[in-house]
Design a protein around this nucleic acid. Structure first.
Lengths: 348, 348
DNA sequence: TTGTAAGCGTTATCAC
DNA sequence: GTGATAACGCTTACAA
């Protein structure tokens, strides 16, 4: 059953090194030998032991993805499979595999990051979020772990990153709502220590201020990236004496929570409350009403992150890089704008 | 930067074997030695090389997931992250990690399966689908790869599996539509060589036949598990002179495609066409109209599959097992049934 | 063109 | 309790 390189060598009447050379397509090996060896490999159903190879090559041809355990139920956010799809595509093009580190009981993200890389199971790591003063980035740096982070790190020049221009993106959504006549606009964001939350809040604020509207702290809410937080945020906003007429949510899942809460409390969307989201997940166009959302090209974020990491692995001397991925507002009914016929707006 | 067991041993003034024993919490090691060694480990920021350990232990403490490349865009179906979440939970409870095998250019599923396991990168494999005469099962068997398949294999006693009673589940949905008065009911399924498609078709047929309705082949459509196939299926059904008044889709994504097509062609749901799906993905309750769907406990499917595999790895002599996971019909508006107030039906 | 031998970082089997 | 030593299966100088 389990044949190894020696078995193959023996049966082919050559040495293990020859077999190894055949495996690595070494050019200076005779055609006959090569063919004979290959035949034996097939006969014995031989598969090279990747673990042994990793040990000697000091490389596993594998990319690690650190799934944060601070973000509750990260896997449940449709952002994840899409970013994974992007990563997987780049990885497989380069012949790399993917290793997932899910929250191991008792280990924090930093320990898992260090362990995954220092244990040599992966050649590099993709981090899925960036926080203010993110300890993960320090750990990556201190341990010399090739790393790419999806999201902008707050300290420049520590790791390579891929991100959207989140400030501009949030500015654009907010401006859109302002153009529609809204003057009191709420903001429902993710965790406050996520850079993405701060950036989007900054863009939201800038849009308001440019029109001479003062940002009202009562209109700001932040929670985790799940539906429940969106609900809570909306309930809070609706309880205000001077409630907003529109809400910018920093994530589609938050937006859905917000819409659900508003609906349950008897408000119509978009007539009584306009809502917008971020990510443009598939659900957005099928929701009731279809959700206006900022498409941030999640697939491309993943794809680019993996590409950057692979380039770094191939040429470690390469300078760190930051790449900004485009965004694009997809207008549907939830924001109250006229949705043109034939547009990407649900049932058309 | 990269310290190994020898460095630790040297600094602690002991032999590598002692360090190894400390690592594995071997009881016959003196407290003082143990503590001294641990301190050095911390000082040197030592992390054991998992690759070297795997090599000698002949085990990687890793579960492999084979993502089929025949099912186009598998990652895009919300089924995937949910089943992954279940697998991840069981795996991490047992201290196992997860390795993803995505479609590598040029390698078919079978080659990837053999490679992943025989290369010793993973201790066992979870297959995400079962086909008629599935070559993957033979490969797993021939290579002695510990395997659990999600879905019922057609040949009993080859691998352990986790599945729903798909025949009964489809019977239940179809019966529900029949109870609502429908007599011509279409069926839109996934690929024809998937056991799950056949099982659900069988359940659908049985329900009709029990009420004396002959199954009309014109009402059957099968494609892949993506929205486009659902669209095409619905278009075909609507083009029939004697079109159905309801459709059972074998997947929520198919159902959404079907609903979209019907909507675009001017049919109202559920008034002109009732639609039901399978999986009860999060999108289902937020769609327009909310989708009636068969909840098959996808999370539990993943969780149980991983649990079975882990048990098999722990005790290889264990008999193969098959486990059936419960299903439950979630009635919403798309099937035209009265959705009770306060039920799980969207905006309530 | 091919073979020999050392070594990748662990763990396991003996000794003592 | 602890230390040599031999694997685990492969790659890669260095020889031939």
């Amino acid at each position: 059953m389990g044949s190894n390189i020696k078995d193959v060598a023996l049966r082919a009447g050559v040495s293990p090194s020859t077999v190894s050379r055949v495996l690595s397509k070494n050019p200076r090996i005779s055609k006959e030998t090569s063919e004979r060896v290959r035949e034996v490999m097939r006969d014995l159903n031989y598969h090279p032991n990747a673990v042994a190879r990793s040990l000697v090559k000091q490389s596993s041809q594998t990319l690690g993805i650190l799934i944060p355990n601070t973000i509750e139920q990260f896997l449940q956010n449709p952002f994840f499979p899409e970013v994974l799809r992007g990563i997987a595509q780049s990885a497989q093009n380069a012949g790399y595999d993917i290793f997932l580190s899910t929250a191991l009981h008792g280990l924090d993200d930093g320990q898992r990051l260090a362990q995954m890389a220092r244990s040599k199971r992966v050649d590099g790591v993709i981090l899925l979020t960036a926080r203010v003063h993110d300890p993960l980035l320090d750990i990556a740096l201190d341990n010399g772990i090739p790393t790419v982070v999806i999201g902008r790190p707050d300290a420049e020049g520590t790791v390579s990153w891929v991100d959207n221009d989140n400030k501009k993106a949030a500015y654009d959504v907010t401006a859109h709502l302002l153009d529609l006549g809204h003057r009191r606009i709420g903001f429902i964001g993710g965790a406050q220590d996520l850079i993405v939350t701060l950036d989007r809040l900054a863009g939201y604020s800038q849009a308001l201020e440019e029109r001479g509207i003062v940002v009202d702290p009562h209109l700001l809410y932040s929670g985790e990236f799940h539906e429940e937080a969106g609900c809570q945020g909306m309930v809070r906003l609706l309880a205000l004496a001077d409630r907003p007429s529109a809400v910018v949510a920093s994530d589609d899942v938050l937006a859905f929570g917000a819409m659900r809460a508003a609906g349950e409390l008897g408000y119509r969307i978009p007539e009584d409350m306009a809502v917008t989201g971020f990510n443009d997940i598939p659900l957005a166009k099928l929701a009731n009403p279809p959700l206006t959302s900022m498409n941030v090209n999640v697939f491309e974020l993943g794809q680019t992150a993996a590409r950057l990491l692979l380039e770094q692995l191939a040429s470690p001397q390469l300078a760190l890089r930051g790449i900004t991925v485009e965004h694009r507002l997809v207008v549907r009914r939830s924001c109250g704008a006229w949705a043109p016929f034939g547009s990407d707006s649900g049932w058309g």
